[in-house]
């Protein structure tokens, strides 16, 4: 799409970054498309039905749910952030509108966020320096909004050593810097 215009990552590069600090690897995910899905008033039952048919997961509060082609996590009462592969779903908002019709308000969010995958044998020492999430105490699939270095982020625990972090795109550099500083401090 739009070969005329070349995309730039949130960190200002043509291709996503991979940064290693000690045992931590931070991988910028530039290949995910997002949209928000919020149930229209009184339409939750219809939305749930349409979402099921379209394979759009609508997980419980504070949960992330994987799937194909859509994954999703809960962000607010009757509201989710839905993600899919950018290559196939750059027009994720249009696709979801087709699937969910007037049961939900849908807004493209792809470039509102920078996504980082964090990987290390145990991410607790890093995260305890960055946010108030009780990372060792929450289960895999836990998703929450949290303040991280003054930035409102979403954190999804995929495993004790795997986290996906969504931060405000315009602050991608500051967020990565915070991860680097905290990693050097932690390990």
């Amino acid at each position: 799409m739009a070969e005329m215009l070349q995309a730039m990552t949130a960190l200002g590069a043509r291709s996503p970054a991979v940064v290693t600090i000690g045992p931590l690897t931070v991988t910028e995910r530039f290949d995910i498309a997002f949209a928000s899905v919020a149930a229209r008033r009184g339409q939750m039952a219809r939305l749930a039905k349409a979402a099921k048919a379209a394979k759009v997961p609508l997980p419980d509060p504070a949960r992330y749910q994987g799937g194909t082609p859509y994954c999703a996590f809960w962000v607010a009462p009757e509201m989710w952030l839905v993600e899919a592969a950018f290559a196939s779903h750059e027009l994720i908002a249009a696709a979801l509108k087709d699937a969910l019709g007037d049961t939900a308000s849908i807004t493209e969010q792809t470039d509102a966020w920078v996504a980082f995958d964090l990987a290390a044998p145990d991410l607790s020492p890093l995260l305890e320096r960055l946010c108030n999430v009780d990372f060792p105490g929450v289960p895999d699939g836990y998703a929450t909004r949290t303040m991280l270095e003054h930035l409102g982020c979403y954190l999804v625990r995929l495993g004790p050593g795997a986290v996906r972090l969504y931060g405000p795109r315009s602050s991608a550099k500051s967020l990565l810097h915070a991860l680097e500083v905290a990693a050097a401090s932690a390990w």
Partner: peptide, 13 residues
């Protein structure tokens, strides 16, 4: 009970 949904798109565009 108003049917209104809000989301910020400041960074998206």
């Amino acid at each position: 009970d108003l049917d209104v949904q809000l989301i910020s798109t400041t960074e998206a565009w």
